[in-house]
């Protein structure tokens, strides 16, 4: 494994990154690189190993992979509360430039999990150079996602004060007045909520011109695929498919970004379905997926 950790600069701050070099150049696609866009806060901490394992898998198959930490997260400079959705998209853009500079790749794909998928789409839509988007359980209702995350603050209040002293709406109001909300130790600022509310993801999705794969990670087999499934992933897929080539898959979740009693650094179904799609994208002729393909076993 050839993996090189380093820092690169973005607006005067240092961003921590790891570059995975392709293992097989012969017959592989050394001209192609992927940037991995991590989820937010504690979800990033809990899913770190899955990104590491999948990056190694892609490198083994001949791709370059750059993983990085947004400013204010992981080992990068800055504080979480100073970062916003805009700074994160800016970080993705900087990572694309860094990958091109270091690996000399012409073709770039973005892979994102949860909010990282959303950020990948935002960055991909504004830069025509992004060829592929792989979105694992992307967040479509960003504001709703952030609002829902405030529940963790209620749990902390219950633990610390034995009562709930401020509801989610009251926390949000305080946040609007400049008092960040503590969510599992990460301070959410008003800028995060304000920017989330202003984003119309359908517009961004329809601006994107490359290929995309949206994977819905269902909680249980009962939720996998099915006509009645109006998941966020399906919604996003429909927007993307309206203007480009998009595929939707629905598979059962094999790992969790929440606290979990199970350790799974290699979710096999998610990996194999994604790799199959990535391999199909290498072929000169487009493989027709088009319709959702539930994989439930």
């Amino acid at each position: 494994m050839d993996e090189h950790p380093f820092h690169f600069s973005c607006n005067g701050s240092r961003i921590f990154a790891i570059l995975h070099s392709p293992e097989q150049r012969a017959g592989g696609e050394s001209g192609k690189g992927y940037i991995f866009c991590a989820p937010l806060g504690e979800e990033q901490v809990r899913t770190r190993r899955i990104f590491t394992t999948f990056a190694r898998e892609l490198a083994r198959r001949g791709s370059w992979v750059l993983r990085f930490d947004y400013r204010g997260e992981g080992d990068s400079d800055g504080h979480f509360e100073d970062a916003s959705l805009e700074t994160r998209v800016e970080d993705v853009r900087a990572a694309i430039s860094e990958l091109r500079r270091r690996a000399g790749v012409e073709r770039v794909g973005l892979l994102g999990l949860r909010l990282g998928g959303t950020l990948a789409l935002l960055a991909g839509a504004e830069r025509g150079e992004v060829e592929d988007l792989v979105l694992w359980a992307p967040i479509v209702d960003i504001y709703g996602y952030l609002y829902s995350a405030l529940r963790a603050n209620l749990a902390t209040q219950t633990l610390v004060y034995r009562e709930i002293r401020a509801t989610r709406d009251e926390l949000l109001e305080r946040c609007r007045r400049g008092e960040p909300v503590n969510v599992q130790g990460f301070l959410f600022t008003w800028a995060l909520f304000e920017q989330a509310r202003a984003i119309d993801l359908s517009q961004h999705a329809q601006q994107y011109r490359g290929r995309s794969l949206v994977i819905d990670l269902a909680r249980s087999t009962r939720d996998v695929g099915g006509d009645g499934n109006r998941s966020e992933a399906r919604c996003l897929y429909e927007w993307l498919a309206a203007s480009g080539v998009s595929d939707l898959m629905s598979i059962q979740r094999e790992f969790s970004w929440e606290e979990t009693p199970t350790w799974n650094p290699r979710p096999e179904r998610l990996f194999s379905q994604t790799l199959e799609w990535v391999d199909a994208c290498r072929q000169p002729k487009k493989v027709e997926y088009g319709t959702p393909r539930p994989v439930s076993e």
């Binding site: 494994m1 009693p261 650094p265």
Partner: peptide, 18 residues
């Protein structure tokens, strides 16, 4: 080993076992 960005494997299974 097997954690974060390091090499090595910690096989899938119960967190309690690990």
């Amino acid at each position: 080993h097997g954690v974060g960005d390091s090499e090595g494997e910690i096989e899938a299974g119960s967190v309690l076992v690990h």
